[in-house]
Amino acid sequence: MFDYKLLESLERVAALKSFEAAAQELNITQSAVSQRISNLEQRVGAILIQRGKNLTLTPMGQELANHAIKVKQLELELHHVLGENGVSHPLKIVINADSLATWWFKATESFHQQHNVMFDILVEDQSEGLKHLEQGLAMGCLCSSNKPLAGIRCEYLGSMEYRFYCSPQFKQRYFPKKQTQSELEATLTTAPAVIFGADDKLQKQQFQLWGLPTQFPYHICPSSEGLADMILNGQGYGILPVIQAEPFTDRLVDIFPEREGINVPLYWHYWHQSGSVLNKLSQVLVGEKTKGLIR
């Protein structure tokens, strides 16, 4: 049998990327955390953490950390079944940044009020989030993939519409008039775009579909709100959800009003257990209120 205090220490070091931060969260000394990890490594006969400038788990360490996360989730479900609502545990889920910035908290407000759940949210691009569920690092995942996973239930929530926006000043500088295809192609090789991160392929995919250049200068801003602010401030153009852009109709211009918007589907993947807290959260997410918020 494993000592779950040791597993918990390993999981926290992995999540926080720091022995010191893990010690503070667990309310023990840093040396105690190090001793726990050493004891666990002796127990399994393998190195679990690659120590260096950046702490990373070995494959064996990752398996044990994943097991610790699953045990935490099972404890949460057990407390829920027993009606011990005074006990709270984090619910580790993956959400794409745009949903988090627009509709997620409005949709889950009543759920949070009814259940003693602490969300432990990992933000990931909508095309990449499912990998965390596959690796056992999360209990639920909101993403654009409908890829089936063994033991995982998948629910379609709706689609978010995206469009290309910029500030009026930016449009005047780079898109002052209706352009021919060749003129537009030339403009897009110089006009700075704003993208969420290296995994954000939405703009390239859409440009490829439209026959436009897929190589263009861009800022990287790994924040949905920050990305919108950069576009509002005229630092670049980019793709925003229509529901995020609507409050700023006087400060944003649709660059391609004659073209169709980009519809990105959203799927909720989760561990399915009858009567579980995750099931109750899933019922909220597939409800009519959520569909109205996503639009």
Rank of each mutant, 00 (worst) to 15 (best):
E8I: 15
E8W: 15
S9Y: 05
R12C: 13
F19K: 11
A22I: 08
I28A: 08
I28W: 10
T29F: 00
S31N: 13
A32F: 12
S34V: 12
S34H: 09
S38G: 07
L40N: 06
E41C: 09
G45N: 08
G45W: 13
Q50I: 08
R51E: 11
G52N: 04
K53P: 04
N54L: 08
Q62Y: 04
N66M: 08
H67D: 10
A68G: 01
V71L: 13
K72M: 05
L74T: 08
L76H: 11
L76P: 05
E77W: 04
L78C: 10
L82H: 06
E84K: 15
E84Q: 15
G86E: 14
V87Y: 11
I93R: 01
I95A: 08
A97T: 03
S99I: 14
A101L: 00
W103A: 06
K106M: 14
K106A: 15
K106G: 10
A107S: 09
T108M: 15
F111S: 04
H115P: 00
N116Q: 06
V117L: 06
V117H: 06
F119I: 04
F119N: 13
I121L: 10
V123C: 09
V123R: 02
K131W: 06
K131A: 14
Q135C: 07
A138V: 07
G140E: 03
C141E: 12
L142K: 02
L142P: 05
S144K: 09
S144A: 11
S144F: 08
K147E: 15
L149I: 11
G151E: 04
C154N: 14
M160H: 01
M160F: 04
E161H: 14
R163S: 05
F164M: 14
F164E: 03
F164K: 03
Y165G: 02
S167C: 00
S167H: 01
S167L: 03
R173Q: 15
F175P: 06
Q179C: 02
T180C: 08
L184A: 01
E185H: 10
A186R: 12
A186E: 09
T187F: 03
T189I: 14
A191T: 09
V194H: 01
F196M: 15
A198S: 15
K201G: 11
K201H: 15
Q203M: 15
Q206P: 05
Q206Y: 08
F207M: 12
Q208N: 15
L212G: 01
P213W: 12
T214F: 12
Y218V: 09
H219L: 03
H219K: 10
C221M: 13
P222V: 11
S224R: 09
G226L: 07
D229N: 15
G234W: 02
G238W: 01
I239W: 04
L240Q: 04
L240D: 02
P241K: 00
V242Y: 03
P247M: 02
P247R: 02
F248E: 05
D250H: 14
P257R: 07
E258N: 14
R259H: 12
I262P: 03
N263R: 11
P265D: 01
Y267P: 03
H269V: 10
H272N: 03
S276K: 02
V277A: 08
S282W: 01
Q283P: 09
V284P: 11
L293H: 07
